[in-house]
Design a protein around this nucleic acid. Structure first.
Length: 584
RNA sequence: GCGGCUGUGGUUUAGCGGUAUGACAUUGGCUUCCCAAGCCUAUAACCCGGGUUCGAAUCCCGGCAGCCGCACCA
């Protein structure tokens, strides 16, 4: 059994996650989160919210998981979120049609399917595997399609990313932030991709949870005002150059920006923030790196893109976060599709005096002469240069028709105006997290087996295996277990009182009196409960209980009074276990 | 989507033509019991559908799912 199997087996058995629809045989690409998995996921999301929503001030929104067709036409997903596939008639092998013609055409990804078909036939391209005839090129789109409303309805798609919901709300969000760049917005929610053949369990799902931030910044200034905070943070950078030459560099983000490895401060700041988040939830530094997208794999609209990658036992390095500079691509795309200006007016520090050449067609005269074409004529006049307008006869071309305009219908002059700012289409920095993958990595990195002495009092102590999930206490689903040493009412009653007290403090606590104390400790080790409270007969004499630390199995004794505050500080405030009571 | 291997209680595993073996876990109980102890008790399984057969978990076909390889992963 490899580590993946061990983790998945534990996850299934102890209620973290399992394949969906098991009752009916299951379907690949869908997973259920059980009671502990859901809680773990919420805690990871909660820390994400703390960093992005509370600390950074990128407030959260929620938009539908179904989108209308226009949205994804504009975003390019209807046309582009698909690949032209081509199957061999003989051996049924499927190939990317654009890859097949790559040696013949320079820009194969711009061709239509018909063009691809033609090129394949004309050049007699055969199946690279068996040499058989190739079938027609077809598109496989990875979006789930649906119908909105009854009957033929209106086409809708399950969103393939939460991002579009934020872009299309640009105007309202910009107004919410009083039209000041930079501003950010976040969304945590489900996205959907109809993967051809999802494998690798929770690593590649058809329905998955994303946590995304879209940060709208001034394209002319990609410095970050708080960059100092992370300038000395050291991360593992796997740059384009590093990938070509096979090295990963540890360096400060300040150096990375200065040396031009990371495009700019804003992107570097968000690499640091991702680094901080992943370590806070328990990803080990040694198994975390940031890989730069190589020029040819980067989406055409991005300037620079870094993936946070986590090393796993079975799958190697997997991508869990993408941090991209998406430029103004999306905002422009939606602006064009919706015919709405999506931009921010940015005032200059000092107003500028600008001399402009102004053209004012007289619509009162143009209207009666040109009737329906008047508007087109006026637009054409506006873009004419001064020397054309100074001629005795002005000619413009409307729909290929040459039209002569008398000079008296248009006034023009040079005007000096005060310009106090300009409209700017913001660029977007996007950290995009795959929460499900991250959750799996947190479980795998927390998973540990160790050999411990079974019975300390035994003369020849035997070692036995202990499975423990070493979760950071902040993400552990169950935070405290309360265990009466024996199933005796004199111990059970005070134990239940402690449960109530700890619950009041907002901690997730379980009560367990079934089986021996050792078994109950191990049960809690296996689900990663960081602290266990045990009530014994001494508790009845002096109002104290023992607290056991999951990782070291050490115990201290502390008073029942104030135990909930103590536990809260242990779980959330980094209080040291050794200073939490009398050592035993 | 293609090829190979696989599918038995919650988990893991034996059986491979006559309704199923064991382990761990789980339930209830006993025991002043601090690291999966012991004793008693109870619950629980042949992936789904079709075929062959007197009889199928076992053989055959199809489906679904998992693993490995190929392809795919904007």
């Amino acid at each position: 059994m490899d580590r993946y199997e061990q983790v998945i087996e534990l996850a299934k058995r102890r209620g973290f996650l399992w394949n969906s629809f098991e009752l009916y045989g299951g379907t690949a690409g869908f997973y259920d989160y059980g009671p502990l998995g859901s809680t773990l996921k919420r805690r990871i999301e909660h820390i994400w919210r703390d960093l992005y929503v509370i600390q950074e001030g990128f407030l959260e929104i929620e938009t539908p998981t179904i989108g209308i067709e226009d949205v994804f036409v504009a975003s390019g997903h209807v046309g582009g979120f698909s690949d032209p596939l081509c199957e061999c008639i003989k051996c049924s092998e499927a190939f990317r049609a654009d890859h097949l013609v790559a040696s013949i055409v320079e820009v194969p990804d711009t061709l239509s399917n018909k063009e691809l078909d033609m090129i394949i036939k004309e050049n007699g391209i055969k199946c690279p595997e068996c040499g058989g005839e190739l079938g027609n090129v077809y598109e496989f789109n990875l979006m789930f399609k649906t119908t909105i409303g009854p009957g033929s309805g209106r086409t809708g798609y399950m969103r393939p990313e939460t991002a579009q919901g934020m872009f299309i709300n640009f105007q309202r969000l910009s107004r919410f932030y009083r039209d000041k760049l930079p501003f950010g917005v976040t969304q945590i929610g489900k996205s959907y991709r109809n993967e051809i053949s999802p494998r690798q369990g929770v690593i590649r799902l058809r329905e998955f949870t994303q946590a995304e931030a879209e940060i709208f910044i001034d394209p002319r200034d990609k410095k970050h005002r708080d960059f100092e905070r992370f300038a000395v943070t050291i991360v593992n950078l796997y740059s384009e150059e590093g990938q070509d030459n096979g090295f990963v560099e540890q360096m400060t983000l300040g150096d990375a920006v200065n040396r031009g490895i990371v495009a700019h401060e804003f992107l570097a700041y968000h690499i640091a923030l991702t680094n901080l988040f992943l370590q806070r939830i328990g990803i080990s530094q040694a198994k975390l790196r940031f890989r730069q997208h190589k020029r040819d794999e980067m989406a055409h609209y991005a300037i620079d893109c870094w993936d946070a990658e986590i090393e796993t036992d079975r799958f190697g390095w997997i991508e869990v976060v993408g941090i991209a500079d998406r430029t103004d691509y999306d905002v422009n795309a939606h602006s064009k599709m919706s015919k709405t200006e999506l931009a921010v007016y940015v005032e200059y520090d000092e107003p500028r005096i600008v001399t402009n050449f102004m053209v004012k067609p007289d619509m009162g005269k143009l209207g009666p002469v040109f009737k329906g074409k008047a508007k087109a004529v006026s637009e054409a006049l506006k873009i004419l240069p001064q020397e054309e307008l100074e001629k005795d006869e002005i000619t413009v071309v409307i729909d290929g028709e040459e039209i002569t305009v008398p000079p008296d219908v248009v006034e023009f002059a040079e005007e000096t105006v005060k310009v106090s700012g300009e409209t700017v289409v913001p660029h977007v920095i996007e950290p995009s997290y795959g929460i499900d993958r991250i959750l799996y990595c947190v479980m795998e990195h927390a998973f540990d087996e160790e050999m411990v002495v079974a019975n300390e009092n035994d003369e020849n102590p035997e070692k036995e295996e202990r499975i423990v999930l070493r979760f950071k206490s902040e993400v552990a689903p169950v935070q405290v277990a309360v265990l009466p040493l024996l199933t005796r009412s004199e111990l059970m009653i005070p134990a239940k009182e402690i449960v109530m007290q700890v619950r009041e403090r907002g901690l997730l606590v379980t009560y367990d009196d079934s089986g021996t104390i050792g078994r109950r400790y191990r049960r809690n080790d296996e689900i990663g409960t960081p602290y266990s409270i045990t009530i014994d007969y001494q508790s009845l004499d002096d109002e104290t209980v023992t607290i056991r630390d999951r990782d070291t199995m050490m115990q201290v004794r502390a008073p029942i009074k104030g135990i909930s505050d103590l536990l809260y500080n242990l779980v959330y405030k980094g209080k040291k276990f050794e200073t939490s009571g009398m050592p035993i």
